[in-house]
């Protein structure tokens, strides 16, 4: 149900590590809970983000939620397409709906403590 090549945090973000660059987005469960996304507020390239801390906000018509970074590092790329098409997060949460790319200091340990797909699925079913 959840892509097995990704890692997940308890705030419903996913992360994919390619070399020392982590791509971050929100899970299919998170986008479904939010409903139609109408605005995504993201950091700028060069900003520092910290694991477990807010890096932006995501809004649906009825609600606003913080986005939490699963890793620490420097933002190297931001998905600018979400400014004009925030609903991409609903349509393609793991691909076109990615949010930021972060260069992590130590790729070997950057994903420590995050959940596997199976663990996240169990976590979601407890929360639901």
């Amino acid at each position: 149900m959840y892509p097995s090549d990704l890692k997940y945090d308890r705030e419903h973000e996913w992360v994919r590590l390619d070399g020392d660059v982590a791509t971050i987005g929100i899970t299919d469960y998170a986008q479904d809970q939010l409903g139609e996304v109408v605005y995504v507020d993201l950091p700028s390239v060069g900003d520092e983000v910290s694991a477990g801390e807010s890096f932006g906000e995501i809004e649906s018509v009825k609600s606003v939620s913080e986005l939490f970074s699963p890793v620490s590092g420097e933002v190297v790329e931001v998905n600018a397409a979400l400014a004009d098409a925030p609903e991409t997060v609903n349509a393609s949460p793991y691909e076109d709906g990615w949010m930021i790319k972060v260069r992590v200091a130590d790729p070997a340990t950057a994903l420590d403590g995050l959940m596997s797909a199976e663990e996240y699925e169990a976590f979601v079913s407890e929360e639901a």
Partner: peptide, 9 residues
Amino acid sequence: PVQYSGIIE
């Protein structure tokens, strides 16, 4: 009911 299929839809 606040929504069925989605507010925007």
